[in-house]
Design a protein around this nucleic acid. Sequence first.
DNA 1: GTGAAAGCGCTAACAC
DNA 2: GTGTTAGCGCTTTCAC
Lengths: 338, 338
Amino acid sequence: MPTIRDVSKLAGVSVATVSRLLNKSGYVSQEAEKSILSAMRELDYSPNEVARSLAGKKSHTIALMVPDILNPYFPRIAKSVEREAEARGYNVLLCDSDHDPAKEERYFETLRRKKMDGIILASYSARPSGLRELLERDFPVVSVDNVFDADYPMLAVTADNRGGARLAVRHLAESGCRRIGHLRGPRGVYTAEERYEGYKEELLQSGIFEPDLIAQGDYSAEKAYSATLALLDRHPRIDGLFAGNDLMAAGALQALREAGRQVPGDVKVVGFDGLDMPLLAQELSTVSQPIDEMGATAVRQLADLIDGKPIERTERRLGVSLIVRGTTGVSSQDSLYP
Amino acid sequence: MPTIRDVSKLAGVSVATVSRLLNKSGYVSQEAEKSILSAMRELDYSPNEVARSLAGKKSHTIALMVPDILNPYFPRIAKSVEREAEARGYNVLLCDSDHDPAKEERYFETLRRKKMDGIILASYSARPSGLRELLERDFPVVSVDNVFDADYPMLAVTADNRGGARLAVRHLAESGCRRIGHLRGPRGVYTAEERYEGYKEELLQSGIFEPDLIAQGDYSAEKAYSATLALLDRHPRIDGLFAGNDLMAAGALQALREAGRQVPGDVKVVGFDGLDMPLLAQELSTVSQPIDEMGATAVRQLADLIDGKPIERTERRLGVSLIVRGTTGVSSQDSLYP
DNA sequence: GTGAAAGCGCTAACAC
DNA sequence: GTGTTAGCGCTTTCAC
């Protein structure tokens, strides 16, 4: 593999000049530039980014930490993060913690060793100690769709979970539901708590809050399925259901179907996320998050952090919107496909 | 940040000894080990992987190139690749080409600069010139779910697409279908051609092959939706449909529903992939690929390539299996959820 | 405008 | 068993 030295020799200049041209730093005369360029072409030179990183103290790589890339929410995040990152000259290292705190900690150490320029944290484990250490070292980290407590001082990009939940529940109430259940996400997970709060607030305000209509889920369709069956068993007359995310809404729909409940006739259902899953997306009323924008915003914030630019807000909360479809009463014949 | 030199000083040994311990290469005495370990702890030392890469000629990172991480097939690949890679000490750089040849080429150049140890290619663009260059330089590359022609000599891990297609079509025929259509994948894409061939072979053998029952899709649900509507228009009496992948099957199901066709009553449908999408996975009969195994196998092959181990087979073809569910006649009440 | 040279933090001979 | 030292390929002062 040809090196910068080979190029400099062939071009009859010094490595410093080649480096200047490469990085567009400092002056390089027309003729020097010409001969360097042709030397590069002739040698098929390609700068060694590893050496650049070592000397220049920047790896031009950021890490994306997710709990499970199979959860369709995260490919959405990954897509937008990758896009924005690539556009800004960063590459993305995919870290799937697999919901395993040990693996996550392993990754934090790896990221430190690999001198990542920053981390987009789309994971939501409790209190990763590796993360605390990184933060103490002023490692640039931006959290997406999650807000940590004060022990973990970092930027966060989130959606308006509380407001979205209220939108969803209000819509159910306005559609005539009086017994509105909630299939909530895991305890201690920020978004789950926020959505639960929104649900509660709205119903409290309407005077129809009933704590026993809440079922515990873990953001997975499987758990949602069984939790919904149990909920139906306890409260056969439930007529509305706000699921903490679309995946759980899918599990709930399956359970409702098997329990012989008509949707939206007997029970109306609203999800959260606005994922674009085949079949599901045709039917499910949901609260849509601007996931792409969240990913892109996170990268932008991270890039500013890395560049040492002043950060105006430490928390960015993006708006959500209600999408009304078949599971709350509109004809399910409507198609998303053009 | 403390360096290996700081550790060696504090431990009262040379950097070489520390390096030996770090890499478990060469002998290190008990006492040296002890003092080094405590020095590391005291300094909170973390080896600089960038420097290791430069000196040691290995980045311990592989790239995963996908055309679109939003297509649910690719998170499956990503998951298994990441898992196997992490277990073997490699990290994974996510490269989403976005179906854009220019972006893909940009990535090939980047991967060369970043000294990736290898590439898992789950992309399927025609003839990337950047890839040819990498191959010429003996860059380790393993292709998943795709086989390139002889100009691109590399290992490949695929599923038995042809056999799977025959399984699907035979199942439709045995279920009583006589006019079996095919919603095929994009021209020139290896898996699409293979599945098409299998479809054709099986029907030719049964004596019910009819070329006009073939509709062109592009592996997306949207295109499948419109192509299916057009197909139904041309051939209202179609009674079976083999979709080239599950995403297209989803689009087809939507079209059939809107066209007023009963599934599986009027038309039976089989997909390909065995994706685990909410709702869809409850109903769709499909040919299941061992995606996890394909990803893991690809990483294993790649690791062997990187380590210079002898490769026994340049092409690995994994078996598939038919999963019969609601869209070919079994009660759609069956649930995948426990 | 350009070049010489000192690192960046680590590995790997090679010598002891 | 351990230490010395020459790189790995690049960036970046600092002179000229």
